[in-house]
Design a binder for these strands. Structure first.
Lengths: 241, 241
DNA sequence: ACCTGAACACCGTTCAAGT
DNA sequence: ACCTGAACACCGTTCAAGT
C-alpha cells in the first residue's frame, strides 16, 4: 500500500541497500545499467548475460526487454552512463576561461573512472559503430558535445577546439590503456575468467620481459600528471589566448 | 603422392588462391587464423563464429578443435599473428644503433596494420588477461621482447628501454584508436552489423558535433608523422647517446 | 502493468562414430 | 588421420499467457 503511493519519480527515500544484490523495488533502465556495471566490475564483460543480469536483479532475464531493447543497447547505455556521469561532477566547471584547469580536472576524473571500471573502459574506447555520422574516440556524444562547447565558451575557435579535443583524447586513450594493461592493481577477479587460456609460456622464451620488475609497468599517477602538464602546456602554446 | 613428399616446411609452391574462400588443402593452424582475420575484416568480430569459420574453410566447425583449443585461443592467435608479422618485415632492421629510425619505421608499420585491420586492432589493444605475469599494452609477448631487445642492442639501459617502450606504446594506442574512431575510411561493411543499434539521435541535440565537418576527424597521416617526430625527439633528448 | 514459460535460432564445446 | 553428427549447456530474443 504505502509502496504504491510512494512512486513519486524523485525518489528521496533512499533504500540504502547493500550494493550488489539490488533486490526488489521495481525495475528501471538506470537500475539495470548500474547492476550491469557492477556485474562487469566483479566478473568481467564476458560474464554479463541478459539472463544472469536478470537473476542478479531478482527477475527472469526476459523481463529486461521491457526496459532495454537488447544487449547491444545495454552496452551502449553502460558506456554513456559511466562516461557521462563525469559531466555532472560539480568540480568539473570551467572557471574564468581557464580551459587548461578544466582539462586537468577532466583528465584526472576520466582516469579515476578508467581505473574504477577497468573492464568498462575498453568498451568506451573501442565500442563499434554507434551512429554512423560520427563516432567519437570516447564513445559518448554528450561528452563530446560538452567538451567542444566548453572550449568554445572559453573563447577558442572551432579549429582550436577540435585540435585540443583530438590531442586530449589521444593522450587519454594512450595513457589509460597503458595503465590498464599493467598487472591488475587490485581489481581482483575481473578478467580472471574461469575460461582461462593457455598456460603461461615458459619465461625462458622472453628473458628481457621476465627480467624487468613488474613495478616498472605499473600504473603511475605521477607520470600521468606530469605528461598531462606537458600536453596542456603544448596545447596552450599552440592556441595562446 | 607428390603432396606428401612436398611437405618441407618452407612451402615454395604458392597455390596462389583467390583470397576469401580458401577451399581445400588440408587444415592448418595458420590457415585457420588467416581465414579468421579475413572474416573479421569483412564482417566484423561479432560475426566470427567457430561454425561460420569452419564453413568458410569448407569444413564442419567442430573440425577446428583439432588445431586450436577454442575460440579464445583463436583470438589470441589472431592478435599474435597480426602483430608479429611486423617483426619479420625486412625493412624493420635497426641500422647502426639508430633506434629512432627503427621506431619511426615500426610506428608506421603498426599504423598500416591498424588501418588494414580496423576490427582486429582493438583486440590487440584491449584483449583481456593473457598470461597474468605480464600483459603488454600491445598484446604480444614476442613483439614486446623484440622491442626491448632492440633498444638494448642500441646501447640503451634497461630503464631507458622501458621508458621508451612505454612512451612509444602509449603514443601508438592513443593515435591509432583516434584514427580508427573516425568515420570508416572505406572499410565498408565492417561494423555495419545487421544488428544495427539505436537510430541516430537527432543531430539537433548535438549542434557542435553536427556542425564540424567530418574531415576534421579523419585519420591524418601527416599529423601522425609529425607528432611521431616530436615524440622521438623528446625521447632522444631524455636518453641522449 | 509487469513479469514468466515456452519456444526459436543460434552459440561453443565434447565425443563417439564414421571414412 | 582427419572429419562429421549428434548431443549438451548455454546464449539473445520473441511472444502469448499468466497474475
Amino acid at each position: 500500500m504505502a509502496d504504491a503511493d510512494d512512486s513519486t519519480s524523485g525518489g528521496l527515500a533512499d533504500p540504502a541497500e547493500g550494493e550488489t544484490v539490488t533486490g526488489r523495488g521495481s525495475l528501471d533502465r538506470r537500475r539495470i545499467i548500474d547492476a550491469a556495471v557492477s556485474l562487469i566490475d566483479q566478473f568481467g564483460l564476458r560474464q554479463l548475460t541478459m539472463r544472469r543480469l536478470g537473476a542478479h536483479l531478482g527477475v527472469e532475464g526476459m523481463a529486461l526487454y521491457h526496459y532495454i531493447p537488447g544487449r547491444e543497447s545495454l552496452l551502449d547505455g553502460i558506456v554513456e552512463t559511466v562516461i557521462d556521469e563525469l559531466l555532472d561532477d560539480s568540480e568539473l566547471v570551467v572557471v574564468g576561461n581557464d580551459w587548461r584547469g578544466y582539462l586537468r580536472r577532466l583528465a584526472l576524473a576520466v582516469r579515476r573512472t578508467a581505473i574504477a571500471h577497468p573492464e568498462v573502459f575498453p568498451l568506451i574506447a573501442t565500442r563499434p559503430s554507434m551512429s554512423p555520422w560520427t563516432r567519437p574516440p570516447l564513445r559518448s556524444l554528450r561528452w563530446t558535445e560538452t567538451f567542444l562547447r566548453t572550449m568554445k565558451d572559453c573563447g577558442l575557435s572551432d579549429e582550436a577546439a577540435i585540435a585540443i579535443y583530438r590531442g586530449f583524447c589521444s593522450f587519454l586513450l594512450g595513457h589509460l590503456l597503458l595503465d590498464l594493461a599493467g598487472p591488475p592493481v587490485d581489481r581482483a577477479a575481473a578478467g580472471t575468467d574461469p575460461a582461462t587460456r593457455q598456460s603461461a609460456p615458459d619465461a625462458g622464451e622472453y628473458p628481457l620481459l621476465a627480467s624487468i620488475e613488474p613495478d616498472s609497468m605499473l600504473a603511475n599517477s605521477v607520470e600521468f600528471e606530469q605528461e598531462l602538464e606537458w600536453l596542456l602546456h603544448r596545447l596552450a602554446a599552440m592556441f595562446a589566448d
